[in-house]
Simulated assay, not measured.
Amino acid sequence: MSGEGGAPPEVLPEAADLLAAFWALAWDRPIGFGGCGGISFSAIERYATALGLAGDELWAFERAIRAADGEWLRWANGKDGKPQNVASRPMSPALFDAVFGG
């Protein structure tokens, strides 16, 4: 999720509020052993309602958040649908015992 050379992508000024809403809503996602899940509709609806959005504006807001969330999930869970490897070494019985006192 970066631009050229690893720099953050440029955000259009018109999208700044949507991006701020996306990052605020990102805290309301399920995270499990299989990776991250999507932001729930109820969280998006509550946030939109708090902003005073209703009708078509609410649905446009929901589509925009879902689009951003889809891209973030693709990145967070690995581009091939597999979770990114966050460990420098794969878990082995010996490593498990060392970490959890086996």
Rank of each mutant, 00 (worst) to 15 (best):
residue 2 S to D: 10
residue 2 S to F: 13
residue 3 G to N: 05
residue 4 E to S: 14
residue 5 G to H: 02
residue 6 G to W: 00
residue 7 A to P: 00
residue 7 A to M: 08
residue 8 P to Q: 02
residue 9 P to C: 08
residue 9 P to L: 13
residue 10 E to W: 08
residue 10 E to F: 09
residue 11 V to C: 08
residue 11 V to T: 10
residue 14 E to F: 02
residue 14 E to N: 05
residue 14 E to I: 04
residue 16 A to V: 11
residue 17 D to A: 15
residue 18 L to Y: 11
residue 19 L to G: 05
residue 19 L to T: 09
residue 20 A to R: 13
residue 20 A to N: 12
residue 21 A to H: 03
residue 21 A to T: 03
residue 21 A to N: 05
residue 21 A to L: 01
residue 22 F to W: 09
residue 24 A to H: 13
residue 25 L to F: 02
residue 25 L to S: 05
residue 25 L to K: 03
residue 25 L to E: 03
residue 26 A to S: 14
residue 27 W to L: 11
residue 28 D to E: 14
residue 30 P to K: 05
residue 30 P to E: 06
residue 32 G to Q: 09
residue 32 G to K: 12
residue 33 F to D: 15
residue 33 F to W: 13
residue 33 F to M: 15
residue 33 F to I: 15
residue 35 G to K: 06
residue 37 G to Q: 07
residue 40 S to P: 08
residue 41 F to Q: 13
residue 42 S to R: 11
residue 42 S to K: 09
residue 43 A to V: 04
residue 43 A to T: 04
residue 44 I to S: 00
residue 45 E to D: 13
residue 45 E to G: 00
residue 46 R to S: 10
residue 47 Y to K: 05
residue 48 A to D: 01
residue 49 T to M: 08
residue 50 A to V: 02
residue 50 A to M: 10
residue 51 L to G: 07
residue 51 L to R: 14
residue 52 G to H: 06
residue 52 G to S: 06
residue 53 L to A: 04
residue 54 A to P: 03
residue 55 G to R: 05
residue 56 D to M: 08
residue 57 E to Y: 03
residue 58 L to G: 04
residue 58 L to C: 06
residue 58 L to E: 11
residue 59 W to L: 08
residue 60 A to S: 15
residue 61 F to S: 01
residue 61 F to E: 01
residue 62 E to F: 07
residue 64 A to F: 01
residue 65 I to D: 00
residue 67 A to Q: 11
residue 68 A to I: 07
residue 69 D to F: 00
residue 69 D to S: 02
residue 71 E to V: 10
residue 71 E to S: 06
residue 72 W to V: 05
residue 72 W to H: 13
residue 72 W to P: 00
residue 73 L to W: 00
residue 73 L to K: 01
residue 74 R to F: 08
residue 74 R to C: 06
residue 75 W to A: 11
residue 77 N to R: 04
residue 78 G to K: 05
residue 80 D to S: 12
residue 82 K to N: 12
residue 83 P to Q: 05
residue 84 Q to K: 11
residue 84 Q to V: 13
residue 86 V to M: 12
residue 86 V to R: 10
residue 88 S to I: 10
residue 88 S to N: 10
residue 91 M to L: 13
residue 91 M to R: 12
residue 97 D to R: 15
residue 98 A to I: 03
residue 99 V to L: 14
residue 100 F to N: 14
residue 101 G to T: 07
residue 102 G to I: 04
